[in-house]
Amino acid sequence: MLKDITLGQFFPGNSLLHRLDPRTKILCSILLIVAVFLAKSALAYGVLILLTAALIIISQIPAGTVFKALKPLIVIIIITAFFNMFFTGGEEENVLADFRIWFLHPVIRVEGIVSAVKMALRIVLLILQTSVVLTYTTSPIDMTDGIERLLSPLAKIRVPVHTFAMMMSLALRFIPTLIEETDKIISAQKSRGADFSSGNVIRRVKALVPVLIPLLLSSFRRADDLALAMECRCYRGGTGRTRMKIMKMTAKDFLFILFCALFIAVRFLPMISSSALGITGMNFSF
């Protein structure tokens, strides 16, 4: 059923992360992304893994749900790791495996494996952190409000920030409505014997016509009604508009930003010496 699709990934709750200002969360996601990209040493990665685990615990979202965020990207992670494994240069003495397939000559070196693990870990951390800090804990409407406020300086150079934000929140607002409507029309046509799941591609596409036409019609009708309703309430764009919910940054917001900014320092964490791994001449840089 379409009803099972969760929009975005918002997971309602009342944890510290849920209660932070959306602006804080957007900024912190960026800071954490930077931190992940700056991390070089194994120790730095260790620190970030711990941080991510801590964030997941704080968010009070079941770990299984959080890890679901990785599912759509597993293929990308695997491909990235694969290429890093074979195409990272390194010392001849570090060759672990050497294949000869036709004219190809792929070589796996220690550097390649290290780099593959790092890349995979990097992507996993990125996704987990941003989902926990931002997408799982911020409702889509809060998110657009946050983006609007963060970008509001751009309005000075005539970027229609408010219009975009309004369009975004309207679109977000109507996605569940549209899904519900689609569900209803599909059920109705199924009651009249529509068959969406058998036959070849052309038949299946054709079977969708009885769903798409009513859906399109109702979207237009809805857009008309909405425009009229907005005009009746004298909507004239963003100028001079006040808000019902005024976002306020509190001490905990500033503290959280500071906390995230601290992790940029992982850049300077020392590498665990390569001798500890018993390999000489290892190069961790990318």
């Binding site: 029309i185 109705a188 009651s191 009885p210 036409i213 009513p214 019609l217």
Partner: peptide, 9 residues
């Protein structure tokens, strides 16, 4: 269904 006229196509 309710409001079945919205399924006409």
């Amino acid at each position: 269904f309710q409001y079945p006229e919205y399924q006409l196509f």
